[in-house]
Every structure is written in C-alpha cells, then in structure tokens.
Design a protein around this nucleic acid. Structure first.
Lengths: 180, 180
DNA sequence: AAATTTATGTCAGCCATGTTGACATATCTG
DNA sequence: CAGATATGTCAACATGGCTGACATAAATTT
C-alpha cells in the first residue's frame, strides 16, 4: 500500500505532474485535435470552391477583413509564408475585387490591405459558417465553454508569441500586429 | 433601465443563446484555433525534415502506430484522401522500413498495416514532442484542463462522426475503425 | 546629394501533397 | 463461373508551399 493516489486506470497515466519528460503521449488530445481541425476547416471549403478560391485565399481574406490597413509584411508574419506564396493568392483576391491596396499615408512604399464590401461579405459568410460549429459546441458544453476553450487554445500557443497573438485577436478592428 | 444583464462589453455580443443564426462571429476562437494549430503541428516538422518526411508521412505513421493491423481502406477513410495520395507516402514509409504490410489472415486481399520497431520509435518521438506542448498547457490551466479540452474538441467534431471517432481514440491498441 | 536600406513586387522553377480517370490483379462471395 | 471487393499503379493536373535572383520606389542615413 505504498502508492495510494487517484488514478482510476493505470494505463491512462494522466496528470504528468512533472511536465518535463512527456513519458506517455496524450493520445486522445493529439487525435481529437486532428479530427476537430479537419471538420472545422472543412466547413468553408464548399463555399470557397464555388468562388474559385482555396484555403490560402480564406486565410488572407480573413486576416485582412479583421485588420483593415494591414501591411503586407505583417500579413506575411502572421501566415508565416513567403511573399511569393502570398503574392499569388493576394493578386487573385485583388484582381477579382475582394481586396484593395492603398498607399500608406506616412510611408508611401507600403501597400495597406483592405477588404472591399464584396470581400467583407465573403469573409463574414465564412466566419459565420465556422461560428455555427463553435456555437453548437458551446451550447452542448454549457456557459463556461467559451472561457474554457479560449484558455486551452491560448495555452497551446508558443508562450513567446502569446502576447502578440492576444493583442491581435483583441484588436477591435484596428490594425496593430508587430507595432503601429 | 429596461436591459439589465451581465454583458460587460456590448460590442462583444457573446452567448449567442439561440445557436442558430450565428449572427456575430466568434472571432477569438476562430483565430486562436489557427494560431494554436499552427504551433501544434509545427512541433514535429523539424524532426520529420531530418528524416526526409513531411506531415503526410506523420499522419500515416501516427495512425498505423496507434492501430496495428489497420486496413488501407480504413486509413483512407480516416485521412479522407485518395488511395493515390496515400500510396505515395505509404510506399516511402514501407520502402524505408517504418511500416510493414502483411496479408490479412481471413481475407488475403487485405494488406494490413503495422509499424516496425523503427516506425514505432519515430511515431513515439513525434507524439512525445506534441505531448510536451499539451502537458505544458494543461499544467498552466489546472487539473480540469484535460477533461475540458477533450469536451471542447469532441464537441467540435461533426456529430454523426463522433461515435466512430470516440471508439477509435479509445481503442486501446486494437484496430476497429468502421467495424471488425 | 549620394548611398543605403526598406517595402513590395515579380519571374522562373522546384517540391509536397492533394485531385481525377483509367486500368490491373488477386481474392472473396454468391 | 461471374461479379464484387481490396489494393496497387500509371499519367496528368492543381494548389500552395519553397528558393533564388532581380526590379522599383520611397525612406533613411551618411
């Protein structure tokens, strides 16, 4: 009787406690992230395909919509892709009238990004689609769901990046990624 | 004073309550899923690159490791890709000795999938990497973290698919995706 | 003013990983 | 035996990453 603790099933080895060695993988969360993400990003695919767009366009449109006046360099840092990759999808969004570029007022080298009304409508449509899934999940869980999900997701982000990410998602419509 | 309720900030319009129309997008969760997933799947990339593999190889290796004797058709259904796409990465994993294929005992058309010891070691290494991130997140949140995260992720999965997914992640090492 | 740095764009080509369509083979089932 | 099933394969194409090289305009530094 030397080992009395609260492990109902020793095979599950939960509560790593030391948090360093990661002795037994947390299989359920690893796999649930795969399945949940697969369904979550799958929602917009049909709509995007009808517009001739893919997930890359969705990401660009989303962040420009949420951050009017975003600089190209900031968007590159968010998406962590190269300017060549971004250029391809951005050009299509601009050519087809979903995104606009305007010269920066203080720095005329900059091409600040804005969604057009058409772009805003598509971005909103896609966000609402994804929100339906989130809202259904929250309603199944209860009133704490939003706060719990947010805590979990924030904790999964690289600690050094969290400050910037939290500033960003709380921006309230004003652009400020690395600094104004 | 006709509207007394607990909304600290009316611009946030949280708690959709009806759960049908998805009137205002849940921006924070949508974006946090993007950032959290980006960091989560980024962890294994370095290790994979050192082996000449990519994320597609990781997914195959992971599910074969977790499901010894998995049938090709079952793996296709999990990953939701075509057999041609799977064939390409699976062939490399087999050729390089990470995965083995054995004839089914009852049905000799089947090529049941198993990881080799080498494959198991790599799969475990990658899972432990991802587990470190999860364990860190859990330790920041508290003892309820695992249960909360699991509830949220399950609730985000398509309701029709949940039964199969839950059976799958609880399989305990015995393969049974659609049916035995 | 000239030189340099910065913000952005562009061309060309490669790679990983998804797709469709057609077809081959072995094996199981009725 | 006839047909359905499990798997593999060839060929071609699409998307969205990547690198490297180079161009332009505007800001900044010297």
């Amino acid at each position: 009787m030397a080992d009395i603790n609260l492990r109902p099933d020793p095979s599950r080895a939960d509560a790593p406690a030391n948090g360093n060695a990661a002795e037994e993988p947390v299989w359920d969360i690893i796999e649930l992230i795969f399945f949940a993400y697969r369904d979550f990003v799958g929602d917009p695919d049909g709509v995007l395909a009808a517009f001739g767009f893919g997930r890359a366009h969705h990401r660009v449109l989303h962040f420009v919509n949420r951050n009017p006046g975003l600089k190209v360099a900031e968007l590159l840092e968010i998406l962590r892709i190269t300017k060549q990759s971004l250029g391809r999808v951005l050009k299509q969004l601009v050519d087809e009238g979903y995104v606009e570029q305007r010269e920066g007022v203080t720095d005329r080298r900059q091409r600040l990004l804005f969604v057009t009304p058409k772009g805003a409508a598509l971005a909103m449509r896609l966000a609402c689609l994804q929100t339906k899934r989130i809202a259904r999940a929250f309603s199944e869980i209860g009133p704490e769901a939003h706060a719990e999900a947010r805590r979990f997701l924030v904790a999964m982000i690289n600690p050094e990046a969290r400050g910037d990410v939290l500033d960003f998602i709380n921006h309230g419509g004003r652009p400020r990624w690395p600094r104004p």
